[in-house]
Amino acid sequence: MAQVTDRSSFVHKTLAYAGLIFVLSLILIPYSYIALTAFKPPGEVFEVEWLPREWSLEAWRYTFKTVEFQKYIFNSFIAGLGAAILSIFIAVPGAYIFGRKQLRGKEIFFYIITVALLFPYVLLIVPITITWIRIGLYDTLPGLWIAYQIFIIPFALWILRGFFAELPPSLEECAMVYGCTQFQAFYRVMLPLARPVIVSLLFMTFLIGWSDFLFSNMLTTGEGPRTASVILYVTAVGGERVEWEVLMVMTLMAGIPPVLLYILAQKQLMKTFAVRRR
């Protein structure tokens, strides 16, 4: 009996470690290679060699001085931040109502939102672009902020609604008996409780704005609030010769901040993503 358990647990461990190593190498090999490439001088990128023969900051200098990539990184930052703040103002009140109030037709309404969750957003780029040109939102930051809501709001409503629905039912009633108006009960009790979820949604929306390429490419011009993703795209496919070492510097600059954010928000994200088993 004991033997059987031991053997099974050996297989178990082997399988688990094999899986872990497989997945980790799938990620770490490419990343470490390109991280090293960013420190190669222009001449070295044409051969496959892990370590640079000569460590060089030339690519970094070029990216900062000539391309002024930091400018676009800043644009990405502002685009993400604005979108994140705006999304909270839209999603939190709506989700609160869906999660906590009795409402005729609520289920149908919620169904519409769920359908929106599965909506192919890429389609909307076409009419949104036309409308933005017409009403003057084309090539502006607010134009980007509003457009990014398409990506996040259905998801945010879904997550927040679940959160609000699971809080004890008598919280607002209690607040109201002890002197709150309807709005105060929301503002002073429900909102502080939802803060962790709101923070992780802020973070996710920020990353959507930071990462987006499609809308930014379509809705902005070179003179406007162009984001880092678009510059990266242009550098990768635009020129005669691709400056790989510069491209790799850009990938590090645009890629590392989100990873750091993810690691910082790890605990919170795990909770927010918890889809209850049914």
Partner: peptide, 17 residues
Amino acid sequence: GIMLMPYAMPPVVTGAI
């Protein structure tokens, strides 16, 4: 944290890689 890296980065970044 490592496993989330591909997802966390902008798709254009991983595409370039």
